[in-house]
Nucleic acid binder design. Sequence first.
DNA 1: TGTACATCAGTGAACGCGCGTTCACTGATGTAC
DNA 2: TGTACATCAGTGAACGCGCGTTCACTGATGTAC
Lengths: 201, 201
Amino acid sequence: MRYSSNHKAETRQRIIGEAARRFRKHGIEGTGLVPLMKALGLTHGGFYAHFESKDALVQASLEAAAEQTLERWQASTAAAPADAMLTPATPAGDEPVRAVIDDYLSARHRDEPGEGCPLPTLAAELGVRGQPSATADAMIEQMTALLADCHLEAGPGDGGIVALAAMVGALTLARAVSDRAASDGILAAVRAALQPAPREA
Amino acid sequence: MRYSSNHKAETRQRIIGEAARRFRKHGIEGTGLVPLMKALGLTHGGFYAHFESKDALVQASLEAAAEQTLERWQASTAAAPADAMLTPATPAGDEPVRAVIDDYLSARHRDEPGEGCPLPTLAAELGVRGQPSATADAMIEQMTALLADCHLEAGPGDGGIVALAAMVGALTLARAVSDRAASDGILAAVRAALQPAPREA
DNA sequence: TGTACATCAGTGAACGCGCGTTCACTGATGTAC
DNA sequence: TGTACATCAGTGAACGCGCGTTCACTGATGTAC
């Protein structure tokens, strides 16, 4: 073989990583393969040594972005309980979800779609293209479970999806609005609404 | 003049109507001017007698779709109180918002994006294109006011935005999911969560 | 009423461009001997 | 150690296509006389 044995796999991962960023930032239609490959120091012809089509790359990138986002959530929920122990008045399980929600509804997440959750950026486009994705199903299910496990919602088991819908909607609206203060206000209002009510110590 | 005095205005409205439908159904990037004009029995060259650019049409179509959606909301909230009088146990102001929410989170709305609210279909694309729109600001503000006026949320005045975010997110997710039952479940869960708790008669 | 003219919504060919995809080729490397 | 060969990731020109936009033109109509 011409290159080291895992060279091709590494290039494939580099393509997926850059594509996942660009799809989230500029949309699927807004991301061309020529500039994508050029940004990696490659020529576009080589793309098809790695993927059967642009759609195959979309699928792989969506999976990568979903995995990355879920890992971030899991890291948050895993790290937060340590803090929660410092404030034992808060029921166990509330603090982790606070961290996830605050992170998700942050100005940083709004302003850097390329690094964030693929749902607010890509879900609508997947729907519009008539390409609903089983990856979306799985992602939503796992996110919902994480939210529900943390007992944020009072509802009988399906509460997580309401919080997720509000978070995805809030980010979508916050990015579409032209007034910065209004955008901040949307994030703050949903953040406040989804937090468990503060308790007296 | 060659045509009746309001002929041009009528054609302009026909273009906006068809465009508003197509933008919501196929996205902005996914809607071409040539097929759009052809669908109206016109040729694409004539487009520029009516609009300066595709972006100008996007703006006009977004305004039309926003107006149409708000009128639908207002019609719902205006019509519903008559029913509410039949069940006086429900506080005045709850029934109208029920009608709006049920309509918004219906299978019909999910399956016919071309006739529905432009936020779930176009907000993300406007954000991605770097074209946040003051029309979106105004639309969100008015929808939020309608929801808040109906006292759905317990929060201090900014509750409407949480309900709107949940509704927009729910529709977006319901359209992106490949499993029909899961999609129905998302709509039902958010519908249930946003309704005021049922009261005994 | 009848004719000549001005108007202008709409026509249709053409433009340059970027798109996704194909394909014959290159050339640096690992392997075989 | 040195040479010949096979591999294959990546190259770069080319393809057909649809896009948004431009523009000289058409021809049905309202208006002026």
